Amino acid sequence: MHSWKDKFTEKIANFFYEPSSSSSSSPSSSDHDQTSLPLKDESYLSSILSFLFPSQESISKEENDYEAGSLKIIKCKNSDTKDENPDLGSGKSTSSNEVFEDAIDLKTPKKHVHDLNLDSVFISSNLSQFFLSCLPNIVKGCKWVLIYSTLKHGISLRTLIRNTFEVSGPCLLITGDNKGAVFGGLINCPLTPTPQRKYQGTVQTFVFTTLYGAPTLFRPTGANRYFYICSNDMLAFGGGGSFALRLDGDLLTGTSGPCDTFGNRCLAHNEEFELKNVELWGFTHSSRFR
Rank of each mutant, 00 (worst) to 15 (best):
L186S: 00
A244M: 06
D33Q: 15
G257M: 06
S70T: 10
S36P: 05
I59E: 10
S231Q: 15
T159M: 02
K111T: 10
T192L: 14
L45M: 07
K61F: 11
F289T: 15
V278P: 00
G241W: 02
S90P: 08
L160T: 08
S286D: 08
I48C: 07
R265K: 04
H285Y: 09
T221V: 05
T81K: 15
A103F: 14
C142T: 04
R265S: 01
S79G: 08
G257E: 06
N163G: 07
L49R: 06
T255P: 01
T81M: 13
D31C: 13
S96Y: 03
Y17T: 03
S124H: 04
K140V: 00
K140N: 01
L251W: 03
N97F: 09
P215K: 05
Q56F: 10
K40M: 03
S36K: 12
C142A: 04
W144M: 11
S55K: 10
C189V: 03
R219A: 04
C76L: 13
S90F: 14
S287T: 06
P19L: 07
K140I: 01
K92W: 07
D83Y: 01
R288G: 09
N78V: 06
N14G: 04
S256Q: 02
N163V: 11
D33L: 14
C259I: 00
A236C: 09
S96C: 09
D87Q: 03
I147F: 02
V207W: 01
V139Y: 04
K82L: 15
S70M: 04
I187A: 10
S95N: 15
S287N: 13
C230H: 05
D105W: 09
V113R: 11
N224C: 07
D177H: 02
L45Q: 14
S43I: 15
L160M: 15
K7Q: 12
N78P: 05
S93T: 06
G241I: 00
D115A: 11
D6F: 07
A13M: 06
H269S: 11
K75R: 15
H269M: 12
E63Q: 08
P54I: 02
T209D: 01
G257A: 15
L157C: 05
K5Q: 14
G154C: 07
A268E: 02
T194P: 03
S133L: 03
L106P: 00
S133V: 00
G241P: 01
S46H: 08
D115E: 12
K11G: 10
Y228H: 06
F130K: 08
K61N: 11
V121R: 09
A236V: 06
D87N: 13
L251S: 03
R265V: 01
S70I: 10
H112F: 15
F165E: 14
K107H: 10
N270E: 15
E63F: 09
F289L: 11
P215W: 03
